[in-house]
């Protein structure tokens, strides 16, 4: 996976609370068999009208936000469905970092699997960054967000930070524990034999 270190770019404000993954990528685009190509369908229902024409008042249809690589959002971003199509669509559009006061758990985890950085900042900070409207820098190593004269520190769990900074493959990491897994399975078979599935 592509590492995430420092990102400078346009930050698009979409400050409503509880943006759910149905809104990020609606169901009709979940029929795909691949991870790519979903960027044009991102926020489909609020980005296009019923005939497929762009809605001019939607932020990602306006300059300079068409080129946004950062999203500023309200609390509980990514709630609802577990669909990883949401981070796939964001990434395919060009978004690499999302700044919000809080994230739903599954979406938060899904971001890291795709090299996207979810940054938790208080709503006042998000609003100040939106008002600043200039280019924004997200510095993962320093755990800082900077824009003009503004600078905010953010928290991130060290293990997750490492995954992004080094672009680690989680499955490969877990394969280092294969002996532990095999040992655990043997132990379970003797301690909880009813868990073995026979009647398929």
């Amino acid at each position: 996976m592509e590492p995430f270190t420092t990102l400078t770019g346009v930050a698009a404000p979409l400050l409503r609370p509880n943006i759910d993954t149905d809104l990020i990528i609606p169901k009709q685009f979940l029929k795909t068999l691949v991870r790519s190509g979903l960027g044009r369908n991102l926020f489909h229902e609020i980005r296009y009208d019923a005939a497929g024409a762009e809605l001019s008042d939607f932020v990602l249809n306006r300059e300079p936000y068409r080129r946004a690589s950062i999203l500023l959002a309200g609390p509980n971003f990514g709630c609802g469905s577990s669909r990883e199509h949401a981070p796939w669509a964001l990434k395919d559009f060009g978004i690499r970092a999302i700044l919000a006061p809080s994230f739903a758990d599954i979406f938060y985890t899904n971001c890291f699997a795709n090299g996207l950085l979810p940054v938790q900042l208080p709503m006042e900070a998000i609003e100040a960054l939106a008002a600043a409207a200039g280019p924004l820098t997200v510095d993962l190593a320093a755990q800082e967000v900077r824009s003009g004269g503004l600078c905010y520190a953010f928290e991130i769990e060290p293990a997750r930070k490492a995954v992004l900074l080094e672009g680690l493959d989680e499955i490969k990491r877990t394969e280092a524990n294969l002996a532990d897994i095999t040992r655990y399975e043997a132990h379970r078979r003797s301690e909880a034999p009813w868990l073995e599935i026979r009647n398929h």
């Binding site: 577990s82 599954i106 899904n110 877990t174």
Partner: peptide
Amino acid sequence: GIGTSEVEHVMATQT
């Protein structure tokens, strides 16, 4: 509930 990358992770490692 988990994402698709985690689905793959469970398929590969059962963890």
